[in-house]
């Protein structure tokens, strides 16, 4: 079925569109149906989806101005306890920015490293009680353990029908002065309202 380009599209021409598509294929984007991809085990697929989600969350979260040193200061994503996920995340953000800000990925060990200047903190596994988690600092804390939201996490990954979903705690976001986009909430698995 031949498709006539919309007048707007025709005016811009098709070349930039195809160029964009080609870039996307080359660098790869967040795989959404990774679980279905053959030759990749379920854990790796899950890790890739979670890395992509972490990258995407930046678009739907608004930090207070004080969280950044300057307008061009990077968005820092710290990964605790999962270097492979951090590597995956490095691969995703390569060449990408959030508005004018570049991305910085930090790998942190299981013991408590400094988390000052971090904007997104991912705690792999059980995670434990991290100082940053307890503090009211403007950091989007993401975890993947049952009951993490009760422990001061803002977003927690859950598996629903073998698909990666996430729950959101609005109370935690308020405490940390983070504004979450309603669109993010619309696609969340569960939203825990503020008390």
């Amino acid at each position: 079925m031949p498709i006539r380009p919309h007048p707007d599209v025709r005016r811009r021409g098709l070349a930039p569109l195809w160029l964009l598509l080609a870039c996307w294929v080359l660098f790869g984007a967040a795989p959404r149906d990774v679980a279905a991809q053959p030759g990749i085990d379920a854990a790796t697929a899950e890790r890739r989806v979670k890395a992509a989600f972490l990258y995407r969350f930046v678009d739907y979260v608004e930090w207070p101005e004080a969280a950044f040193a300057s307008a061009a200061a990077p968005v820092v994503i710290a990964v605790v306890g999962d270097d492979r996920l951090a590597d995956e995340l490095l691969r995703i953000v390569a060449g990408r920015t959030a508005g004018a800000r570049p991305f910085t990925i930090r790998k942190l060990g299981g013991d408590v490293p400094a988390t000052v200047g971090v904007h997104v903190l991912f705690m792999a596994g059980e995670g434990g009680r991290h100082p940053t988690v307890a503090a009211a600092a403007p950091v989007l804390v993401v975890g993947e353990a049952d009951g993490a939201l009760e422990r001061g996490y803002t977003i927690n990954f859950v598996l629903v029908d073998e698909h990666v979903r996430f729950d959101v705690s609005l109370g935690d976001a308020d405490r940390r002065s983070l504004k979450l986009s309603s669109r993010l909430l619309a696609v969340a698995h569960d939203v825990v309202p503020a008390p």
Partner: peptide
């Protein structure tokens, strides 16, 4: 398919990226 439209009889089909 790419952005555009196609008219087939009394139906119209539109694709938008």
């Amino acid at each position: 398919q790419g952005d555009g439209y196609d008219i087939d009889g009394d139906e119209i089909v539109v694709f938008k990226r």
